[in-house]
Simulated scan of single mutants.
Amino acid sequence: MSRLDKADCYARDDEQKRRWSLAASALIKSRLVLARMSYRDLQHALADMGYVQHANTIATKLSRGGYSAAFFLMCLRATGTTSIDLPRE
Score class of each variant (00 low, 15 high):
residue 87 P to C: 11
residue 21 S to W: 08
residue 39 Y to W: 06
residue 50 G to R: 04
residue 23 A to M: 12
residue 36 R to H: 13
residue 83 S to M: 04
residue 22 L to N: 05
residue 14 D to K: 13
residue 70 A to Y: 06
residue 75 C to D: 00
residue 25 S to T: 13
residue 20 W to E: 14
residue 84 I to D: 00
residue 67 Y to V: 08
residue 32 L to W: 01
residue 24 A to F: 00
residue 78 A to S: 07
residue 18 R to A: 14
residue 84 I to S: 01
residue 28 I to D: 13
residue 11 A to N: 10
residue 38 S to R: 08
residue 22 L to Q: 11
residue 79 T to D: 04
residue 49 M to G: 02
residue 74 M to T: 00
residue 80 G to T: 11
residue 15 E to V: 14
residue 70 A to I: 11
residue 10 Y to C: 10
residue 11 A to R: 15
residue 26 A to T: 14
residue 41 D to M: 05
residue 56 N to E: 00
residue 57 T to I: 02
residue 14 D to Q: 09
residue 17 K to D: 05
residue 18 R to M: 07
residue 48 D to R: 14
residue 4 L to V: 12
residue 34 L to M: 10
residue 21 S to Q: 15
residue 71 F to L: 03
residue 83 S to F: 09
residue 63 S to F: 06
residue 11 A to E: 11
residue 26 A to E: 15
residue 66 G to K: 12
residue 37 M to G: 09
residue 39 Y to G: 03
residue 54 H to I: 05
residue 84 I to G: 05
residue 60 T to C: 04
residue 36 R to S: 15
residue 86 L to M: 08
residue 54 H to G: 01
residue 6 K to Q: 10
residue 82 T to C: 10
residue 61 K to P: 02
residue 79 T to F: 06
residue 69 A to G: 10
residue 75 C to G: 00
residue 30 S to L: 13
residue 76 L to F: 04
residue 11 A to I: 09
residue 73 L to C: 06
residue 50 G to T: 04
residue 74 M to K: 11
residue 23 A to P: 07
residue 72 F to D: 02
residue 70 A to E: 09
residue 28 I to P: 15
residue 50 G to H: 07
residue 32 L to G: 01
residue 3 R to C: 05
residue 66 G to V: 12
residue 60 T to P: 00
residue 67 Y to I: 08
residue 72 F to V: 05
residue 31 R to W: 06
residue 14 D to V: 12
residue 85 D to Y: 10
residue 85 D to P: 02
residue 12 R to A: 13
residue 27 L to N: 12
residue 60 T to V: 06
residue 60 T to F: 02
residue 31 R to V: 03
residue 5 D to Y: 04
residue 39 Y to R: 02
residue 37 M to C: 10
residue 12 R to C: 07
residue 3 R to F: 00
residue 26 A to L: 14
residue 72 F to A: 07
residue 8 D to K: 15
residue 31 R to Q: 15
residue 4 L to P: 01
residue 58 I to C: 02
residue 63 S to R: 15
residue 82 T to S: 12
residue 51 Y to S: 03
residue 54 H to P: 02
residue 88 R to S: 14
residue 74 M to H: 05
residue 21 S to I: 03
residue 56 N to D: 03
residue 24 A to G: 00
residue 21 S to E: 10
residue 32 L to V: 05
residue 84 I to C: 07
residue 60 T to G: 08
residue 41 D to Y: 02
residue 69 A to P: 07
residue 63 S to K: 15
residue 72 F to S: 02
residue 47 A to L: 08
residue 82 T to Q: 13
residue 61 K to C: 07
residue 61 K to Y: 11
residue 75 C to H: 00
residue 31 R to D: 06
residue 47 A to W: 04
residue 8 D to T: 11
residue 14 D to M: 09
residue 37 M to T: 02
residue 20 W to M: 15
residue 59 A to C: 09
residue 62 L to P: 09
residue 13 D to S: 10
residue 6 K to E: 10
residue 38 S to K: 03
residue 53 Q to P: 01
residue 5 D to K: 12
residue 29 K to S: 14
residue 48 D to Y: 05
residue 18 R to N: 11
residue 21 S to M: 14
residue 26 A to D: 15
residue 70 A to C: 05
residue 79 T to Q: 06
residue 6 K to N: 10
residue 14 D to H: 09
residue 68 S to E: 04
residue 57 T to N: 02
residue 87 P to G: 11
residue 66 G to T: 11
residue 6 K to I: 11
residue 10 Y to I: 14
residue 87 P to D: 07
residue 35 A to V: 09
residue 50 G to C: 04
residue 38 S to Y: 01
residue 66 G to C: 05
residue 62 L to C: 03
residue 45 A to T: 08
residue 77 R to Q: 07
